[in-house]
Structure formats: C-alpha cells, structure tokens
Nucleic acid binder design. Structure first.
Lengths: 220, 220, 220, 220
DNA sequence: CATGAATGAGGTTTCATTCAT
DNA sequence: GATGAATGAAACCTCATTCAT
C-alpha cells in the first residue's frame, strides 16, 4: 500500500475523486423515488452506487439521516421563500398599504415558490409523495400551517379594515391546505417549469375568485 | 382437554362468537391505520386478534386481499354515489334543464358523498392516507378522473350554450383534483359528520366562486 | 336435512354419486405427477377435487396414506408377476429342464412385466420418478433385490451344472439393477405400449449378449 | 463485551477461522445429503454451521445458489472428462485408427470418470440422488445425451466401415442411459474407489458383450 | 360423509445495522 | 475512508393436520 499523497488502490479502483458520498446520494434519490421510503433498500442503494454498506454508515447515521440529507436543504429553502413572502405581505398590511386583493403580488410569490420547487424537483416530488414511513411523512402539514396563519391574519385584517364578513377557521385552514396541494399537484403533473408557471397563474386566479366570493353577498 | 369450565381444543376451538374473521378485520383495520399498509405486520394483526397466522390465511389470500376486504365495499359504494350524481347532472344538461350554476344540486351531491365517506370513515381514512405500497395507492386518481370527465363536459356545455370562455384542460383536471382532495381533507380533519357537512357547504361555495370567476372578465 | 334414502344436499350440490374418494385419487395423482411427492400440496389436491380437507382425512390417514392408496395395488401386482416368473424359472432349474439361455422365456416374462407397468402407467411413473420424500422412495431397491436373488441362483446353477465361471456378487447386483432400470427407462420414455414391448425385446437381447459374454473366455 | 477470554462481538465477531463460508458449505452438504434438496432446511444448515441466516445470504443468493456452489464445479469437471474422452475416440475414428472394439480405451476412459466421481463423491451422490426439486434434478439427462451422441456416431461408423447392422435409436439411447446409470450405481453402492474401479471394468466388459451381441447374427 | 375453521410450526428471504480490520 | 463479514429479528406465507358440527 502506497502511503503518500498519491491515490491509493484499495479493493476496487483508484478512488473516483472522493465522491463516494455523492454517488450514494444519487443512488439513494433514485431508489427512494422508485420505491418510496419504506420499500427502499439500503443494500440496493449501496450496490447501485458501487459502494459497501459500511461506507454508507460512515457518511450517514441511518436510513432517516440519508433521507434527510436529500430533503433537508430544499425544505429549508422553501420555508425561507414562504416566510419571506408572508412577512412582506404582513409588512404591507401593517403599513396599511395593502389593497383589497393584490393579485400581482400573490402570483409573483407563487411563481417564486414554483421556481424553488422546480430547482429541486426530484427531491420535492420524493418528499411530497414518497415519504410515508419517514420522519417527513407529515411535512405538508408544516407548510399548510404557516400558510394558514398568514391567511388568518389577512382575513382578520380584511374584516377589521374593510368590514368584510368573518371567515371560519376551517375554511381558512382548508384554503391553505388547498394552496399547498395545488403546488404539489403542479409539481407532480407537469415536468416543464415554464408550463408550471402558467398553471400556477390559473390556479391563483381561481383561488382568488373563490376568496372574493366569500366576501360577496350570496347572489340569489 | 377440559380445564375448569373453559373448553380448550386444537383445531376448531369452541368458537368465541363465531366471528374470528370479524376480529381479524377489526385488528387489521387498527394496524393499517396506525402503521400504514407497508409497516403493518400480519403477525401483529393476528396476535391482537388472538388468532394464529394460519387463521388469517384461511380467510384471506394474502396481505393485499386482507386490505381489500376492508376497503373494496366502501370504494364501490362511493363510486356508485358519484356515478349517480354525475349521471343525473348530465341528464339535466342533455334535457336543457341546467341553469348556469345549480349550487343547490352540487351541495346536495357533496353532502351525499360526505355521508358515504363518514359511513365508513375508518376505511376511507385508511384508504386515502395509508395505502402507500398497496394496490390501492393510486385510488384517488380514479375518483379524480371521473370527476374531471364530468367537469370537462360541463365546461364544454357552458361554452356551447352560454358562450362562456373555454377552460384549459389542466385547470379542469386540477379543480377535479382539488374537489376530491377537499373531501379527503374534511374526512381527515373533522370527526363529526355534522360539522363535515357544514364544511363541505363552505367548500362548495368557495369552489363555485372560483368557477364563476373563470367565466368573468378579469376586473381590473 | 332430509334423512331417508334420498340424496341430500349438503353445502354444495346433490352428491356427485358418492365418488368423492375417486375424485380425490384422480386429483392427487395429477398433483403428485406434476410436482412430486414433497412439493405436492394436499390443499391443492382437495381444491382441484372440489372437496374440503376434512373429506380427504376421512378417507386417508395422511399424505403417505393417500400416496399409498395410489401405488400400493400396482406394486403388489408387479411383485406378483415377478415372483411368479422367477418361481417358474427356478422350478425349471430344479427340474433340470433349464437350457443354457432360454431367451424366449425371458422375453416373455419381460413383456408381461411391461404389460403390468403400462396397465398402471401413471402410477408407476409417479412411483418410480416422483416419490422422493415418501416411504416409497427406495422402492426400486426391493424390485432389484428379488431380481438379484434370482440371478444369483441362476449363475450358481450355471456354475454348478455347466462349469461356467463364477460371477461376482457386485456384477449380479448391478445386472439386476440395470434390468429394473431398463423397465423404468422404457416406461418413462415410451408412451405406446406396443413400442415398449418392441424396445424390451431389444433390451433383453442386449442383456443376454452381455450375460453370455461373461461366460465366454475373453477373446484377445 | 469481553467475557472471560472469549471476545464476543456483534457484527463481525472475532473470526473463528475466517471460514464461515466453508462451515456453511459443509453443513449444507450434510443437510442436503441427509434430507434431499427440498426437505433440507436453511435454518438447520445455519444452525449446524453455528451461524445466522443472514450470514448464509451474504455468501449465497438463495437455496439454489447454495446448492449450486456445491455441485457446479464437480459437474464441470465431469463434463470435461467426458468431452475429452469422446473427442479422442472420435479423432481415432476420423483417422481410421479405430479397431472394432477398443476395450482398453473404453475401460481407461471409464476409470477416469470413476476417478472424477470419487474425487467429489459426496457432491456427486447428492447431485445424482438428492436433487429432486432443484434446478439440477434432470442433470443425468445431459450426461446421457452427450454419451448417446457419441454412441450414435460410433454405431454409424461401424455400419459404414465394417458393414455392421444398423442399431435402432432407442437402443442407442438406452445403452447410453445405462452406462451413466452404471456409474451412478457404482458410486452409490461402493465406498472404496479401488473396488469401484474393479466394478467398472466388469461393467464395461459386460456392456461390450452386449454391444457385440448386437452385431452378431442371432445364434440358433 | 363431509364441512370449514383453526392450529402452530416451519419455510425462505430481506432488512437495517454493526464493527474489526 | 471504506470494506465486507455477520447479526438477529422480523417479514410474508404454506404446510399437514385436527375436530366440533
């Protein structure tokens, strides 16, 4: 064995550039997407990465950790995008600048979210549709919650500032849920990001239509 | 062997209540709901039912079959309700009797669906949120599809009969998806059927608001 | 339930002529031939017979017994044929009537055996090729043994009466084995009994050729 | 955990002798020979090897693979021996060097085969008598076939070159079968290789006697 | 005669994980 | 950093067999 600063051979080939971890992540992503969290096999992941089980456990604590390594970063980014958008809107409300329905702003925010989702499309699809059994299986709930809180504040403000009728908690919750679901739906049904952005505009328009309807006296 | 007043036998055993199958189904439902299809353990199901594995395999072919025994009937009923409702609405369209938005009929139909769902609440919750890995994991797709077809026909009719603007396929698909999702959402978030019926009315109202918005010239 | 002399309905149809046992035997034969003794499944046998497990256990003690019910009779018949033939030949020896090689008699005997085998072809094929794991798995040994004893006596007689050279025990044993194997070979490779009888004549001729060779001084 | 002077570890365990695989193969051989392929239990094999089931599946893909690991090499060797012998004999025929019955060569070849068989006696006994249910259950057929082809060529050559009478296909096939069977018989009935070699000489002599008989006009 | 429910042991296989080297 | 041998529990499933009815 040559111990110096040269590459050493150890079992297989000359080390592929110390990118074992990368190979594992790629292989893992594939397996999780194909089989879902529970049915994914660590053995398979290692085999397809051309690496042994031991190597996996050097880089990752366990199955959950490996899964987390794929999705944690995207989740954080998405949270950041959403937080920023909601904070901005809240700031406008607080400054009394909010017009009744600022559709342009909503669309813009939605598009930004779509961009974030498509930047890590594989990871988000995996996270949002294949994580049953993992610690992330209820992840949507988190996104819904922060959205819901924002909607609640907005509805309260509309009520206070414009005398709009109150909106029931359940409806607020559901609309938030529906919005998140709409993103998931687009992500899973549309490969092209361009088309996705077009879709999301329609969706937002539809949702604002519904929202407006809530504050409109029931037409006979 | 007679121990005290309890008959103990191999084989047939003095039937507890002639309802071993029932016990298995109850135990299975519990396990599937708690752990999801994949993580559910047949051994556990049998143990909790106070029965051996062999007994399970007398009544059911395999894990899938056991799962199917719980959900097949509810699914059939739900399909029936939806089919009937959509057929009726189509009949009205064909007879030229459909007014632009027959909200009452829609609400009534939705309530019927809710009733069906709550009649088998456990089974539907299980089916709609815990079936990853089973043959039913894509079941919602089916419900969405028939709903989508119906919406497509309705939109086409509106376009033809009232000169309404056309609605893009994607949007139709998504609205159908959203409607189905709304039912799932209610089912999973609201225990009381009464409250559920109230919720669904709000939801339908919201959705019709969105729908109407589609046919309204964008107000500046 | 009608208890009289009329046919009663009990579960399925009017009893099919009280031939349940027959149906089981037919189904069993099929299964054993297809899968071999060990891989054959009693459940399968019952299902294909349109009968329940209980019924099987009414007629047969266990798997072995069921198997035995198929092969015992044929085995007995075959033993009888062989015993008779060997006894006759021995009688001729004792009476000093035996000519050196009575090929005609040998062929005749072999043909009789072939007839017996083809009378129960399925059963013998099953017995001779699919009984690994059953009590009958070494059945050929029995047939070889009685044949071997006969050959031993014949060789001893030849030695004593005609001054033929002695034949080693092993060779006697092997020739007996080979003869039995020849029957099995014909049975398993030739469907038509007619052709089988033709084959057996060739085989006997060959074997006598070998036998004669033993008593012939090795030609340089 | 250090108990006394014996290291006990999970995972790798202080290697007994770095020969777990060997222990498994030995234990497997024993089990397969005792019970036959189908009745052999992997659990038993592992237990007797003092190893867990998982270890078995590290070294072998499944039951078939384990079985194959025992018999594949011997089979290959035997094929090689037979192929070489038949090719040599064919070469002599082509060169016109073949005398009518080269008994010496035949005996020599047979002895070589016997040596090969006894070199892996356990494996061959297992293979030839206990493989029902495995992929190798029809292995003898292969050996018979190549032998048969060789005999066919030899008989044709005898016919063409020496005017010998033609030999029926069935007979050729059966003689080939018988030869193979003779080897099996010797292997299973004689422990000592020395004795086996003696037996095989007798057998070959007998078979040549039969063969010669075929080309001899039936003596009155 | 025959049913059908039930047993319980055992089958092969897969899994995430560990650790000495 | 990484290997590869090994663990041990648990997975789903099938089997021959039993027995009250």
């Amino acid at each position: 064995m040559n111990i110096g600063n040269t590459m050493i051979k150890r079992g297989n080939q000359l080390k592929d550039n110390k990118e074992t971890k990368e190979k594992l992540l790629i292989s893992a992503k594939k397996e999780f997407i194909e089989k879902g969290y529970l049915s994914a096999s660590l053995r398979n992941i290692c085999k397809n990465a051309g690496v042994t089980t031991g190597a996996l456990y050097f880089f990752f604590e366990d199955k959950e950790d490996l899964y987390g390594a794929l999705v944690a970063e995207p989740i954080k980014k998405l949270h950041a995008v959403m937080d920023r958008h909601y904070a901005e809107e809240q700031a406008q409300i607080d400054a009394g600048l909010l017009i009744e329905n600022d559709m342009d702003h909503d669309v813009e925010a939605a598009i930004e979210i779509v961009r974030c989702l498509y930047l890590h499309r594989d990871e988000f699809m995996m996270l949002l549709t294949k994580s049953q059994g993992s610690r992330y299986q209820e992840i949507t709930g988190g996104f819904v919650m922060i959205t819901e809180k924002h909607f609640r504040r907005m509805a309260d403000n509309l009520e206070k500032s414009f005398g709009a009728p109150p909106v029931a908690d359940y409806l607020i919750h559901w609309i938030a849920h529906m919005l998140i679901d709409a993103f998931i739906h687009i992500l899973t049904h549309e490969v092209s990001e361009e088309a996705a952005e077009a879709h999301v505009q329609q969706v937002i328009k539809y949702m604002i239509g519904g929202w407006v309807g809530l504050f409109t006296p029931a037409n006979k």
